[in-house]
Design a protein around this nucleic acid. Sequence first.
DNA 1: CTCTTGTTCAACCAATGGGTTGACAAACCG
DNA 2: CGGTTTGTCAACCCATTGGTTGAACAAGAG
Lengths: 120, 120
Amino acid sequence: MAADPLSRVFSALADPTRRDMVARLAAGDASVNELAEPYDVTVQAVSKHLKVLEDAGLVSRSRQAQRRPVHLEAEVFDLMTKWIERYRRLAEERYRRLDDLLETLPDDIEPTPPQTGASR
Amino acid sequence: MAADPLSRVFSALADPTRRDMVARLAAGDASVNELAEPYDVTVQAVSKHLKVLEDAGLVSRSRQAQRRPVHLEAEVFDLMTKWIERYRRLAEERYRRLDDLLETLPDDIEPTPPQTGASR
DNA sequence: CTCTTGTTCAACCAATGGGTTGACAAACCG
DNA sequence: CGGTTTGTCAACCCATTGGTTGAACAAGAG
């Protein structure tokens, strides 16, 4: 469990149940039992999921009587979006540059010589 | 392997080696051997990683002589950013509303009665 | 056709992950 | 105090994953 933060966040959100929990927590804090209610798994399993989300920094838990309300921490999302946007931007720039290059090519030069049936 | 698309993408990017491959592919296409070079794992392991990335829709492979150049497909990133932004936005709105609420509260009403050190 | 290069497939192994049940801790309720 | 509610910890099970080695396949190059 000594993975880097980015791996932890991606990994935490790779599970549909955990994503659903995050989705529901976006609407408001909830107790473990409340969170567990819709799923047909034990409350212990949900507790484990929450631990994963907490280790990823996606949620935090406070204490309020016996309850441990779970709260969504939105800041960690930035970690992901920054990573994603960076490489998407690069990929798109590269794509655009390739487009430009093809645009300016003389007509008689073919970037990938199509098999014209003519033997070489 | 019948996971939903979002799970596949998050899961694929949960591995640091695969993220590094994506990062390098953002700079340009590469063959499997080229991709494998920096890592001290076998080329078969890299081939497996590429299969995961391909199943997630993050890369595509064409054929060029014996080589199978790997190409980064940036569109899938949108799937993630849309999901992330949606819930981050909700969480932030909720946070803002809570702020507003606290702002308008009369002074003598305490939202969560702080332990005043009185009884145990 | 044979050889070489690049890549994948198959079988296997150790570690991890998501689930279970059962016991336990913490805090309120009587 | 003794119970009840709420949640976690521990041990275990089984499927998945990331890695290995060894063989096979695909497509030039001789």
